[in-house]
Design a protein around this nucleic acid. Structure first.
Length: 473
RNA sequence: GUCCCCAUCGUCUAGAGGCCUAGGACGGCGCCCUCUCACGGCGCAAACCGGGGUUCGAAUCCCCGUGGGGACGCCA
């Protein structure tokens, strides 16, 4: 038997869980689930200045919402500082690390000069072979890795393939800051090792870090995890994702009315494909997912496709489930409280009854809520501009006489009302649309509602006639 | 500047030397369905970045160019 797979998602809580992070989490989750392994969660909060509780909560909640559950307790990196320092001492003892007394100003000047002379801006190793006794009195050193200066560092990446760096191009990175706290580069290696992580799947902005981290693993004599660096997601314009396009927190996508299952389906197809298949159930995704099939070029974020997928899943959802989703999203959207306050069992039943007619034409939960407005809006109904235009004096007269016709209908069904309206239009010598459209406007206040016969059925005889009376008076 | 990665329709992608007059999906356009809007059905337009090789044969392999992207912090 092969060893169990352990993946991890390791966000830094300096902001919300953005779309790229969500995809990274999804890939880690899928990989672990597909091989019967585990996905761990580690919060990289060693930057005390920028890490916030709010960001941690947003990340945790975002993962929950997306249905990406991790295994075990979340690990907080900051709490492991003592262990990190212990490992650095080991490195110091084995001669794989050294104290560097160069000041920030000195380093800044060094980079400045390198830039001016067109050389790479690496640390030049000025304290690599100097003794601490040469240090200025009272100076607090950083600890740097004594990285190899010759040969090469190679990563056999599951996505990128074999990537080679000349060691002379890699400098001696800082392991411990002058205040004694560990840097990200060191903490990641120690934590991944201690947590038993076997596969590191992360954004390809970490590819160079991968090489540097491999040097730390080698200095420590630890086994190196399998790495997979996935391409970043770009905005519609091909540039780095900014707030303007897709770099919103996942909570923003929830607020826009997207379903978790649609998000997962959209995200998994960004940079990954399984033949021509577009729609994946979660189970299918898990079964088909693999690292080498991930493309190496960055993908652009496309709202239109996300929306199309979301529409697909809305249409496919059960009516009851959709109403539950609506209720669940209410606290997260503007004006949601208003509807939430009106959510009686009666309204809920009406919403469920209206779903079949509504879900065919909604791409988001928001559109669904909007389309159902005729069920919960205060009366008198406020008409949309276009709807108002439809209710000409002639149309109102027509509707008034239609109301008298409808009042005689015996079993109030969609079929019966349709028959009555058609007959009415015919006997008045007008097209069905000439009656149906003003009727929709009068009953729903809008022009693009569901089929008017569905509306009549859902509202019921009494309410339908009441509203007709309101608008045709 | 140095190092690294990438390059098929507008977008996501299929394609692992002949199956490609390059396939699917989203978007666009047209037609059908139809009480509106959608859904659904049918159809159309739309791509192998450029140049050299290798080969009987290249979207697929190699090199160069060009164009994108990422990394070069006592941030993560």
């Amino acid at each position: 038997m092969t060893e169990p797979i352990v993946t991890r998602f390791a966000p830094s809580p300096t902001g919300f869980l953005h779309i790229g992070g969500a995809r990274t989490a999804l890939f880690n989750w899928l990989y672990a689930r597909s091989r019967g392994g585990r996905m761990l969660l580690r919060i990289e909060d060693t930057d005390r200045e920028r890490s916030t509780k709010a960001a941690i909560d947003a990340i945790l909640e975002g993962l929950h919402w997306l249905g990406l559950e991790w295994d075990g307790e979340a690990v907080y990196q900051f709490s492991r500082a003592a262990r990190h320092q212990e490992v650095v001492q080991e490195l110091l003892d084995s001669g794989n690390a050294y104290r560097c007394y160069a000041t920030p100003a000195e380093l800044e000047e060094m980079r400045e000069r390198a830039r001016a002379e067109g050389r790479s801006m690496r640390y030049d190793g000025r304290w690599r072979d100097r003794d601490s006794s040469e240090a200025p009195a009272g100076a607090k050193p950083v600890i740097r890795l004594k990285a190899p200066t010759a040969g090469e560092t190679v990563i056999e990446d599951q996505v990128q393939g074999r990537v080679v760096w000349q060691n002379k191009d890699l400098d001696d990175l800082v392991l411990l800051r002058s205040d004694g706290t560990p840097t990200y580069m060191l903490a990641v290696v120690v934590d991944d090792h201690d947590m038993g992580v076997t596969h590191i799947i992360r954004g390809d902005d970490h590819l160079t870090n991968g090489a540097r981290q491999k040097q730390i693993y080698e200095a420590l004599g630890w086994p190196i995890p399998v790495m997979a660096h996935i391409p970043l997601i770009h905005g519609p314009d091909g540039a780095k994702l900014s707030k303007r396009h897709g770099a919103l927190g996942v909570d923003a996508y929830r607020a826009m009315g997207y379903l978790p299952i649609a998000m997962r389906n959209y995200l998994v197809r960004l940079g990954w494909a399984h033949g021509d298949q577009e729609i994946f159930s979660t189970e299918e995704m898990i079964n088909a997912f693999d690292l080498p099939q991930i493309g190496r070029s960055p993908a652009r974020f496309d709202f239109a496709k996300l929306e199309s997928l979301n529409g697909h899943y809305i249409r496919q959802s059960k009516d009851e489930d959709l109403v539950e989703e609506i209720i669940r999203v209410l606290p997260h959207i503007a004006d949601g409280a208003e509807l939430a306050a009106k959510m009686t069992p009666n309204l809920k039943a009406k919403l469920i009854a209206a779903m079949p007619g509504l879900k065919e034409r909604a791409k988001t939960l928001i559109e669904l809520i909007d389309g159902a407005r005729y069920l919960y809006a205060d009366r008198p109904l406020v008409l949309e501009e276009k709807a108002g235009a439809l209710l000409t004096p002639e149309a109102r007269k027509l509707l008034a006489s239609l109301a008298r016709e409808l009042a005689t209908i015996q079993p109030w069904t969609a079929e019966a009302t349709e028959q009555a309206v058609r007959t009415f239009a015919e006997s008045n010598g007008v097209k069905l649309g000439a009656v149906a459209q003003p009727l929709r406007a009068a009953l729903t206040g809008r022009t693009t509602s569901p089929g008017i016969f569905d509306v009549l059925a859902v509202l019921g005889k009494e309410e339908s006639l009441g509203r007709l009376a309101d608008q045709s008076a």
